[in-house]
Design a binder for these strands. Structure first.
Lengths: 193, 193
DNA sequence: TCATAGGGTTACCAAAGGGTAACCAGTCGC
DNA sequence: GCGACTGGTTACCCTTTGGTAACCCTATGA
């Protein structure tokens, strides 16, 4: 039960990712983290200055792993097409391996209480549901829904980038461009199937 | 300063969207909301049972507006291509009009403190930065970065959908499919420019 | 065997903030 | 003018939880 300092620090980090990913920042108390680590609160403060500090350390580590994975994959490719391929594969490999880290960074639950989470999931799902039918009908339903969520994420990513930076944009022009991307992309997926 | 009940309720909702969108749920106290509405705390509790209740009402309303906008646009189109176009345009129109609602639902700040927000933004931005160069070089930089954030969002949307439902997936296969979509899409945007 | 250092615990403080009880005031109908 | 209804306020409670001070215990090496 008793661990040398560096090992304890690592263990706390490992355990924290899970706890924070599952319950979000505010719903997770330092006691929760301590319990999960099989230890008491003051021990946490021997390794991290504050709850913030611990949380930021987690984000930073998770972010580094993601960045490195994608950057390395992209740089190892030669053509544009290959870069795209390697990049996305690396991303999804990271998601699949580093599960809790993904949720910590981008999960819906990341900081919301249960009810808010399900409200937002419902909205996203319903939006995706609304656009799923326009995806080629001869691919299976599950795949269709997955792509639909991808397209919603596409729009979300673009919007977040612009809105959070306060940039103004013409929704008609932007919509047309992203629609072109999506439509051509969907047809490609269709063919590739 | 004195308002009839329904008007006050509306005003509270209007003001709350802004406050919550800017500061997130936990960093916004009921006193903050009350101040912003030019009123005191107990007034809020005459219209909403709890902070949760108020917040969920906001999410619900925002979600409805988004859903309706997209669904209506998509249903008014005749071909698949047109549905895609109308759908995305409607989405971005909503973002542009209903600004605070978008941030409330999907903003990075939605529930995190300042430092976490900037950590996550940095990670997203750096990931986008890493893939931006693979986007056709003859379009302007700003546009390139916007598309890059879209692609990151695409991957994020897909991942969230799968991970939060606990579905297992093969990152290689999924990566290939999404890469096909992205690559074909990017070439289309390129041509359309 | 005994001092000591480092890992760990108990018990506590203080602030923040959700929520409420009791009270006040203006305006409208009679 | 006057009761009473409705919108609003002041002042408070109480729980949660981040953070800490003081203490303990066990292994180790001289």
């Amino acid at each position: 039960m008793r661990l040398p300092a560096p090992a304890r620090r690592e263990q706390i980090l490992d355990v924290s990712v899970q706890v924070f990913a599952r319950n979000g920042f505010h719903s997770t108390s330092m006691n929760d983290v301590a319990d999960a680590a099989g230890v008491t609160k003051p021990v946490l403060y021997q390794h991290f200055d504050s709850k913030q500090d611990l949380y930021l350390a987690l984000l930073e580590e998770a972010g580094n792993r993601l960045r490195n994975a994608v950057a390395k994959a992209v740089s190892s490719a030669t053509s544009g097409k290959q870069q795209t391929e390697y990049g996305f594969k690396a991303y999804f490999r990271w998601v699949s391996d580093d599960h809790d880290a993904f949720l910590l960074l981008f999960g819906t639950r990341a900081n919301r209480d249960d009810e808010s989470v399900s409200a937002i999931r419902r909205i996203t799902a319903e939006t995706a549901h609304a656009i799923a039918p326009l995806i080629a009908v001869d691919i299976d339903n599950l795949h269709q829904r997955t792509l639909a969520h991808g397209l919603v994420g596409l729009a979300e990513g673009v919007s977040r980038h612009l809105v959070e930076r306060g940039e103004v944009f013409d929704p008609e022009v932007l919509g047309q461009q992203i629609a072109d991307l999506a439509w051509a992309g969907l047809r490609a997926v269709h063919r590739a199937d």
